[in-house]
């Protein structure tokens, strides 16, 4: 039996307040039927309306916080996103919307890149992860400070040009779901899974080419939100990282269960 334990780091775009972070990240342990654990990150479109709510609803829904979690099939994801869209549109907070906000909600809506992952067979003979991705949020599967799998396999100079993601409108949803990528990878104790939204993922992909040993040592050693934010601020200042909302979820795969819960205040 192997176990997982996770931590999420995030930082909003420089110049924005922390409350304006428009990514989402969520994790949940295995459910009563033994499915999971699950992890998800999403990146809401800056130019959309209600993008933070959309991104955060998608990740919460994927890990099972809003009804049944979807199976990792195109058909199941399609019907699940339709349900998410209904919930996003019917959010009671919209009762106070202004005319401009109603126009934007109706005519523009929102959009989010999405990466969801489920760990399977952790007590069985072949523990592995299975994931779905739409857009440029990326899973890095790392073993011994080396990337075993990058999913989706976007090169460092290929970020920002991928138009895929999950929309709040139904017109393009079927087409988008048809473009979803699926992947899986075998796990062993000691592995790490890193889930990152685009700006941080791009930085990882570029830095991995230059100095992977230092990169993965640094990321494995992140132990406090302030450490993460300093790293992000330094890389932005050096123009090595795009000024965008960033999210990194690190999942350790271990033979031992987590012994304690750390809360950083």
């Amino acid at each position: 039996m192997i176990h997982s334990r996770q931590v999420v780091f995030y930082a909003s775009k420089h110049g924005n307040t922390e409350a304006e972070w428009e990514d989402g990240a969520a994790a949940a342990p295995a459910d009563a039927n033994g499915h999971g654990p699950r992890f998800a990150v999403a990146d809401g479109a800056t130019q959309g309306f209600g993008s933070a709510r959309w991104a955060q609803q998608l990740v919460a829904g994927f890990v099972g916080d809003q009804g049944a979690a979807p199976d990792l099939t195109a058909n199941a994801l399609y019907h699940w996103v339709l349900d998410m869209q209904d919930r996003w549109r019917d959010d009671p907070r919209l009762a106070g919307a202004t005319d401009l906000q109603r126009i934007k909600q109706a005519n523009v809506g929102s959009f989010a890149t999405f990466l969801g992952c489920e760990l399977r067979d952790l007590a069985g003979p072949r523990p592995h992860w299975a994931a779905v991705a739409l857009g440029d949020a990326v899973l890095f599967h790392v073993r011994d400070r080396t990337v075993v799998t990058q999913f989706p396999p976007i090169p460092a100079d290929g970020f920002g040009s991928n138009p895929d993601g999950l929309p709040t409108g139904s017109a393009t949803l079927a087409d988008m779901i048809g473009r979803a990528s699926f992947a899986r990878g075998d796990l062993v104790a000691g592995d790490q899974l890193y889930f990152a939204t685009d700006a941080f993922a791009q930085w990882i992909a570029a830095t991995d080419l230059r100095d992977r040993h230092a990169l993965w040592t640094t990321l494995a050693g992140l132990d406090h939100p302030d450490t993460f934010r300093r790293l992000v601020a330094d890389q932005r200042a050096a123009r090595e990282m795009t000024n965008d909302d960033v999210t990194l979820m690190r999942v350790w795969i271990d033979r031992a269960q987590a012994a304690y819960l750390v809360v950083c205040l």
Binding site: F49, G50, V108
Partner: peptide
């Protein structure tokens, strides 16, 4: 104005 509108209960 619409592009700068991002969320309910938030200013342009």
């Amino acid at each position: 104005c619409i592009k700068a509108t991002t969320e309910v209960n938030a200013p342009v």
